[in-house]
Design a binder for these strands. Structure first.
Lengths: 243, 243
DNA sequence: ATGCAGAAATTGGTTGGACCATTGAACCAC
DNA sequence: GTGGTTCAATGGTCCAACCAATTTCTGCAT
């Protein structure tokens, strides 16, 4: 189905720069965190203007592949391979309550599937790692008498990782930053997330028992409690508005 | 849990440009397809260098919000609102069989949830629209004696739309082109997708009956058949390699 | 008038050079 | 050591010009 006559590329300077840079990263075996050559050096070595290099790097920065620090340098932020696919999503209106509910629906979908896959695939090491995160979370919960979003997030991430499919973690991580602020001070509901607490262990139990459908069901229950909390929070806000 | 000392932002020129431009788009009520001011005009009006304008536009271009055509102008490509959230995803390695299976797992997660939500929310009009797409698909199936990926895709899209959450369609559409090439010539399996055909109607039945869990279950079955077809295809390829 | 080829204006793409702002390391005084 | 100071390196911004693709205008032939 490939176009038999692909348009010739007479000018694609910045794209060529990115391809060359991707090759460089691969050849030098750079890992996230390392610094790549300065813009001036790249411009000189690639025989292009520094502005062109900057446009290319701006694209990668927008994709979250690199991070630029003025005065310091440009650093690799994520693994880069030549056959990667860019999927820029722009979600309109994630700031209000409705937008938050929409993102939560996506999370419910992925959370349930990740838990099910995890129950099938997680080996002993992965199960142990999840249990470790679960213990840490429960410890934090009891000592501070409330949900801790940080430890909670760590637990879920360990599940995503053990699912054997890195896409789950990528997508949910990208969304996580989006509603992070809401997660912190969630609409004035004091014991936010309290109701979801017990389901973390039930999910783990189903995963450890290698029961995919059970894990899926428990994950759905967990998200349902979070949804209820959110709705309660929204109701609170309405009351406040009306006062 | 918010960082008590967030880093201050002293300079954010291009970001400011984007914000100003977003405001401009909103004020002028520009819709996708319309042309926005030239870089030179923007630079003059915003009192910044044309380079800065270009960096900002490069970011938007990378996010798929605008399209630049040399000699013609810069055109709005998607709706833009000031409170939108960008979620650039870079998925490594979607070209091989394993990558395809990974994307399919994401699709299974979203498909099941979308079907369930659809069963809850779809009104009469949405159900009718889905049935229309289903009829078209079945018609194409019988006349051509095989699955038609185009009509099949249309059906699923109508389900995503009726879910009431645009994120489903956005995410899956972005991934769709990823495995589109595979979808066309699916690994040498002649009756690819054949097994999934009946589940389209069972999904629709569950949606029309407003049975979310039933719809979820049927959607899971459908994806399972596609997964099996894919595995068969992979086995075929292995045989071919060995010959 | 009409149609069309070529000139001219428009617009994004690229270049080179300059300067500013921030960073981090080396250095120094206490 | 601690806290400034200096200084080179680096990303951020600016400017002015030119290139390349596109669009628009112009004028001639019909």
């Amino acid at each position: 189905m490939t176009d038999p006559l692909p348009p010739i590329q007479t000018t694609a300077r910045d794209d060529a720069v990115l391809k060359a840079l991707a090759g460089f990263v691969r050849q030098e075996a750079l890992v996230p965190g390392e610094k790549l050559p300065t813009e001036r050096i790249l411009a000189e070595r690639l025989k292009v203007s520094r502005n062109t290099v900057r446009e290319a790097l701006t694209r990668w920065e927008g994709l979250g592949l690199v991070e630029r620090r003025q005065g310091s340098g440009t650093y690799l932020k994520a693994a880069v391979s030549p056959d990667m696919l860019h999927m820029p999503l722009t979600l309109a209106g994630g700031n209000d309550f409705a937008g938050l509910m929409r993102t939560l629906e996506i999370r419910r979908a992925l959370e349930a599937e990740a838990a099910a896959l995890c129950a099938v695939r997680a080996g002993k090491a992965e199960v142990a790692e999840i249990e470790r995160k679960l213990d840490i979370m429960e410890e934090a919960f009891h000592s501070r008498a409330g949900m801790s979003s940080e430890e909670d997030w760590e637990f879920h991430q360990s599940v995503y990782r053990a699912s054997g499919n890195p896409l789950f973690e990528q997508i949910i991580s990208a969304m996580h930053e989006l509603f992070h602020r809401f997660w912190e001070h969630p609409l004035g509901v004091r014991d936010f997330g309290h109701a979801s607490f017990p389901y973390h262990r039930t999910i783990f139990d189903r995963i450890a028992a290698h029961d995919p459908e059970g894990a899926r069901a428990e994950a759905l229950k967990l998200i349902a409690t979070v949804e209820n909390d959110l709705k309660r929070g929204a109701a609170n806000l309405k009351l406040l508005d009306r006062k």
